[in-house]
Amino acid sequence: MERIEFDYPATHAVLKKAHVGVVGSGDLEVLLEPLDGDSAHVSILTSVDGFRNTWKAVLDRFFASYQGAVRIQIHDAGATPGSVLLRLQQAVEVSQR
């Protein structure tokens, strides 16, 4: 079990919350909420230790094309980087509906 936190700059406000995914084997849950200010905060709780760098790479990639001011909470049960990215994109889509 490891807790990992990251911050990213943000340029625009987000209006809606979004919740996607389930904490099932190889999957994860993402909670995305609007955050006041000009930054995004990500907090990850993962059952698999020692992958901080991988998480950073995935989130760097995600935030390269996403500038929402959000608080993202991730509950991870061993998802692959591909699944993580997919869930993050899905959360953004739901928040824009």
């Binding site: 079990m1 919740h19 849950e29 709780l45 059952s47 509950h75």
Partner: peptide
């Protein structure tokens, strides 16, 4: 759960 190393769900 967290105190036993298991990720909780919201």
């Amino acid at each position: 759960l967290a105190m036993q190393g298991v990720t909780p769900q919201a």
